[in-house]
Simulated scan of single mutants.
Amino acid sequence: MSATAILDLGTNTFNLLVRNADGALVFSDKIPVRLGAGGLRDGVITPDAADRAVAAIAQHLVSARSYGASRSFAFATSAMRTTSNGAELAARIERETGQPINIIDGDQEAAFIAEGVAQAWPELSERHLIMDIGGGSTEFIIRESGRNLWAESFTLGVTRLFERFLPSDPPTAAQWIEIDAHLDRELAPLWDALAANPCRILLGSSGSFDTLYNVMAHRVGRPELELGQCRAEFDLSAWRATSDAVQSATTEARILMPGMLAMRAETLHLSARQIDLVLAQLNARRMLLSGFALKEGVWSSIQDPKTPWRAYFW
């Protein structure tokens, strides 16, 4: 049975998912490319980051082939769509590896994320807010009874915030005030959407949420997420202390926290800050986690033989 590979090319991490024709998981992996590092502030992808991207794609394709994939789809998000040389990098990747790159807009990214999250929580019909924190952008989707009520992508990814504010390690009180004001101002459309569609459930999508869950789990004596686990629920009573610890620690101290994924340590405090702001706005009573996100959402789209997305066949 032939398999399909899906590559999610984020601003920080390049993710690989390989599934059989029946949808069963074959293999998954991630490479910390840091595509936006050193360039997002100027709207470019640096030469070093571009080289890391090409090497990561080549490595993922080798893995995909070794696990029986006969085709691969690659989707690029915020870093490639918002930089002046993102399309140039996509062309280089295709030229050097054979892999076509589908650069998607924020609306399509949010739609894929919502579809992926729904696979992890198919029975969740109550209105909820999906939040996906990336390096270049953060997506929000208000969803109810299997239908998206509202969705928007904001250029508030943690790498973008880090490069914009260049905070101390850890940030000073004055820097947090400045960051909070920026987030509150930029998220005004979300606050308006929530006023029209109130909900009290936050559903975090993969990435930063996975790592924050594992850090919290260690603090309260719970097991970490298991490999392939697609869902969990945060203990809100334990979240506050976990978030405070992550936000007040230095990067070096965060790296040493049990449950921490080292490649997220530099910016995880900015993820926690965004989450706290949203939890307060929701007056949330539940905080859920989906281990599924964009790449799982892509899976549904590519089942159509007439799918518009470009693929690499071998």
Rank of each mutant, 00 (worst) to 15 (best):
W121Y: 14
D244H: 11
A90C: 15
L89K: 04
P223H: 10
V278P: 00
S72W: 00
P308I: 09
T159E: 13
S72G: 10
S206Y: 02
L256E: 15
G146Q: 05
C199M: 14
T155G: 15
P189I: 07
I101C: 07
I201H: 03
L270Q: 00
Q108T: 12
A21C: 08
P100L: 02
D48Y: 12
L16T: 00
H128P: 03
Q281C: 07
L279R: 01
S137N: 12
A64G: 03
A120L: 06
A241D: 13
F112A: 03
A238W: 03
I141W: 01
T46G: 12
R164T: 09
L16K: 00
L268D: 05
E144H: 07
N12M: 05
R231K: 15
F165S: 07
P167K: 08
A74T: 08
E94H: 08
M216V: 03
D180L: 08
S271V: 01
Q119R: 14
P32C: 06
W239F: 05
E144G: 03
E163Y: 09
F234W: 02
L25S: 04
Q274P: 02
G228L: 13
R71N: 14
A79V: 03
F154S: 02
R286S: 07
I103F: 07
M260A: 03
F165C: 09
Q303W: 03
G204H: 00
L149H: 11
L89Y: 04
V220G: 10
A196D: 15
R200E: 11
L16Y: 02
V18L: 09
G134K: 09
A114K: 05
A241Q: 15
P223W: 11
H269N: 11
A5C: 12
I6E: 00
K30D: 05
I31T: 09
Q59R: 13
S237T: 13
L227D: 11
L17C: 03
S78V: 13
G135A: 08
S248I: 05
V246I: 10
F165E: 06
P170D: 12
A311M: 11
N12K: 04
A188V: 15
I141K: 00
N283R: 06
T13V: 15
F165D: 07
L270S: 00
D107P: 10
A118N: 07
L268H: 10
A56Y: 00
G297L: 00
A120C: 10
T155Q: 15
G98P: 04
A151P: 12
L183N: 06
A245V: 04
F234G: 00
A55G: 06
E178M: 12
D29H: 05
P170T: 13
G106H: 05
S300T: 04
G36V: 05
D180W: 07
Y213F: 14
K295G: 01
R164L: 10
L294G: 02
G221T: 06
A50E: 03
D51A: 15
T97V: 09
S28H: 10
Q108S: 13
L40F: 04
L7G: 01
A21Y: 09
G36F: 01
P308V: 08
P167S: 15
L236Y: 11
I93Q: 04
A265L: 09
F14P: 02
E152A: 15
M260N: 01
T4K: 06
M263P: 01
D304T: 12
A37E: 08
F209G: 01
E266C: 04
S84E: 14
L61S: 10
